[in-house]
Design a protein around this nucleic acid. Structure first.
Lengths: 201, 201
DNA sequence: ATTAAAACTGAACAAACTGTCCATTATCAA
DNA sequence: TTGATAATGGACAGTTTGTTCAGTTTTAAT
């Protein structure tokens, strides 16, 4: 990994990155032009091409950096001892994930919630989220434990959509009824229930 | 809703839609040009603009159609009787979802698994999917019930990512530890455990 | 402090695609 | 059959693109 330590390069790249993220949250990745980036970064347009092939290359490099950093911070963490799964290990792993994302919050928030045009996944997520919110409020349930509504519904809707996408990408190899059974099972008992293990506090 | 029933319009729109979906799966939405669409649809480029403002407008219209159709097929379905949640109702609702998506499989599969450049959500989903697959295989668990590995892992990773995105979009209002606790709880006991209800078979 | 390397600038260039317009032709519904 | 309208194909100017190049600044290293 050839690291450049020329001050000019560092400065320019930072200017480009900042301008890029700002522009994405303003108008979305799609409608950004290299002219825009150079303009708000206050650099010459030609300078941009000294560092990146085009705006897609820029996006790729930023993405790779973020994922590499995330990957470092999230190490394999689960272990079995006497056929027992340590809950504390699971929790620690999740804490690392949330911390890692918080440490790059500008990038992640911008990339994960920018309203770009070709983003059908996001639209479907919103669709399911709304559907389940309606169901939830229609039921008028009393909650035993205090889990915020948003967490519960984003968990539910994303899980189901995730399985749907997996199913599509694997050529819909299972019948609708079979899929519905699997999901129902996971929803009621929790994914951990599948395994023949016990839990330590 | 002014419905056109001119044969020429119907024919042209179908040609455009088919060409569009084919091109998306070939090279992704981003790099498609109106020239491409007109070319593979074997229509004049000007004709495209007779029906759509640009390729984004085309995408929007197709998306709206698909979501409207999905919305029709998925009706609110959960009811409580004597504080009991009918599992069969939940299952039926999910079956409807899977059936509805299967009935528009070309559109949904193309839109949900096309490799377009600005698609960080998809990349993160893949990232988590891989991470959890590694954990899974590392653990070498014995499964009680036969839930396909892909379903389990896509459920897990999508659920967690969904909560993360919700958390980001709500300004990270909870601490990492709190989030980890909520998710752990949902994973172990299932989202349904939160409610003070019982289930009917 | 000097210097050689390099990064940056700004302007110019052809190429690709865009969205619009027009006159002409082909196809449709009635 | 006919009047309406959809489709064609070509032309148009306007953007953005990616590249090049000569001239200038800035940097790292001596």
């Amino acid at each position: 990994m050839s690291e450049k330590h020329d001050l000019r390069v560092i400065r320019t790249k930072k200017l480009i990155k900042d301008a890029f993220l700002e522009l994405i949250s303003q108008k979305g990745f799609t409608s950004i032009t290299v002219q825009d980036i150079a303009g708000t970064a206050t650099i010459g347009r030609g300078t941009f091409y000294l560092h990146y092939k085009d705006k897609y290359d820029l996006l790729d490099q930023l993405t790779d950096q973020a994922l590499a950093k995330l990957s470092e911070l999230i190490q394999p963490s689960f272990h079995l001892r006497d056929n027992k799964l340590n809950l504390e290990e699971l929790k620690q792993m999740l804490i690392h994930v949330f911390d890692a994302i918080r440490s790059e919050k500008t990038f992640f928030k911008t990339m994960l919630s920018s309203h770009d045009t070709p983003n059908f996944t996001q639209q479907l997520t919103q669709f399911f989220f709304n559907k389940f919110t309606a169901e939830y409020e229609n039921l008028n349930l009393s909650q035993k434990k205090e889990v915020p509504k948003g967490i519960l519904i984003s968990y539910l809707s994303s899980a189901i959509l995730g399985v749907i996408i997996w199913w599509l990408q694997n050529d819909m190899m299972y019948a609708s009824e079979y899929m519905a059974e699997q999901i129902t099972n996971l929803l009621i008992n929790g994914p951990a229930s599948i395994f023949d293990v016990e839990y330590e506090i």
